[in-house]
Each structure stands twice: as C-alpha cells, then as structure tokens.
C-alpha cells in the first residue's frame, strides 16, 4: 500500500503558536503519536454531484440582488505533490463580505451585513482538478488577538482530496496585502516559501472583461511515497 508522505519540517504550522492566542489553551501539550497509514488513512469520503448545489460556485447569485463589493473570480487546480490532478473532489469556501463582516452570530464587528451575500460556496473539481468560484473580494476586519489586530483579507478553503490523510483546511490570501506581515495566523507557517503558497496570484487569464478580476489559487495536497515501505 502507498503511504502519504509526511510534510517537510517548517512547512506546516505548529499547533502551539503563542502569538495566536487561541492556540494556547487549545493546542495539545503531549507529543503527537505518528499514525502508520492503513486503509483507514488512505481511503476517504467522496461526494457526488447530487450533493453539491449547482449554484454553489457562484456566491454572487445566491440571493435576489447582487452583493456589494468588488466581484472576483477565484480559480485554480487541486493537485498532489507529484502534480497529479485531484479530480471530482469537494471544495468548500467561506468568507466575510466586502465590508469585512461574517454572517455569523459570533461576529460583533459593526460593519454592515449584506442581505445579498451569505459568503458560502461549494463545488467539485473537474477532470483536470480545476475549480472556479465567482465571489466578491472580502474585506479586512479587526479581531481581539492583540491590540489593533486586523486579519488580512482571506477566503477559507476546505478540501478533502482522495484520502482521510489528505484532508486540508486552509486560507487563501491576496497579493500585496499590507496586513500579512502582522498576521499571526499567516505567520504561523515557519518557512517563508511555504507560507507564500497561501497567497493567490493575480491572473489575467481568468480576469473577465467588464465583469471581474481573476485570482488563481492552486492547492497542493500530500503526495505518496514512491516505495511501498515508509522507512
């Protein structure tokens, strides 16, 4: 059986990252135990077309009117470390509206809600591992992690890939955002080149005339060992 590779050191966040204050009381203190991969880890859930709402990819058409803000196309490929496309795989996103407000009872930021924007999307990747969302550019917003803390604009992504071992939840950021430098969540990834993979790329190819700017965000899931044995 092919096992999934472990991440290279520093390319994933540490669970305890004190600048992100919420991690202090929630990150486990005991060392994690390495789980040898069996069918339990190399299989995973799949979701059929029937499960996914047909309009799930377009967050600007889920209500009577159009949401306020800057319309954008966010697209990319879901693939593994060996460059193989991850096909027919569920991608879920959620985000704040253009003013930086989430449609959520816990969000107390006094920026306005938008009656035409929920901020939820879902789609399946195609035969080449591609996905595409139409949405609006989310706003930055304050949070209470530290004095004058602001989250950079971001879109949350949840992907499954082919196995329990490949499950990934992450956040997509925007190029040139001045807040990235100060964000403890973005900076929880120790290696800079790994961190920068969280930043989308402005993309002329998907920028749609008279309609929307395009941003590309490719998502790479763990690859598998070339040899059957892990060590």
């Amino acid at each position: 059986m092919l096992r999934y590779r472990r991440p290279a050191p520093g390319t994933q966040p540490e669970l305890l990252h004190p600048p992100y204050v919420s991690s202090i009381k929630r990150a486990p203190t005991q060392p994690l135990i390495q789980l040898p991969h069996s069918l339990s880890e190399t299989t995973g859930p799949f979701f059929s077309k029937e499960v996914v709402p047909p309009k799930g990819f377009d967050l600007t058409r889920q209500h009577k009117g159009e949401p306020l803000g800057e319309r954008i196309v966010v697209s990319g490929r879901l693939m593994d470390e060996d460059g193989r496309p991850v096909v027919h795989s569920l991608v879920e996103i959620w985000q704040a509206n253009a003013a930086g407000r989430y449609l959520h009872k816990v969000d107390q930021y006094d920026a306005p809600l938008d009656p035409n924007f929920t901020g939820m999307g879902q789609t399946l990747t195609d035969e080449e591992g591609r996905y595409r969302f139409v949405t609006i550019r989310p706003g930055a917003y304050p949070w209470r992690n530290h004095y004058n803390a602001w989250r950079p604009r971001h879109i949350h992504f949840s992907v499954f890939g082919p196995a329990f071992a490949t499950r990934l939840v992450t956040q997509m950021y925007f190029p040139g955002d001045p807040l990235l430098e100060f964000d403890p969540i973005y900076n929880s990834v120790p290696v800079e080149s790994a961190r920068k993979r969280l930043i989308s790329i402005f993309d002329w190819a998907t920028t749609t005339p008279e309609i929307a700017l395009g941003f590309r965000f490719d998502i790479v899931l763990r690859g598998r060992n070339a040899t059957p044995m892990e060590r």
């Binding site: 590779r5 472990r6 991440p7 290279a8 390319t11 994933q12 966040p13 992100y20 919420s22 979701f47 499960v51 470390e81 060996d82 879920e92 996103i93 959620w94 704040a96 989430y102 449609l103 959520h104 816990v106 969000d107 929920t118 901020g119 939820m120 999307g121 879902q122 949350h156 949840s158 990934l168 939840v169 992450t170 956040q171 969540i185 973005y186 929880s188 990834v189 290696v191 790994a194 961190r195 993979r197 969280l198 998502i219 790479v220 899931l221 763990r222 690859g223």
Partner: peptide, 23 residues
C-alpha cells in the same frame, strides 16, 4: 520530494457558514 503541500490554517470562529450545510 516533500514539502510542496499547501499549509494548513485554522477554520476560525465562523466555519459554520461554510461547513454546516454538510453536517
């Protein structure tokens, strides 16, 4: 080759917006 994987980030406090549909 290893280490090309997209890093994980927290789901944050508002994940139910995007995930509750599949509870």
């Amino acid at each position: 080759m290893s280490g090309e994987t997209t890093p994980s980030q927290t789901v944050g406090p508002y994940f139910s917006i995007g995930l509750a549909w599949l509870n």
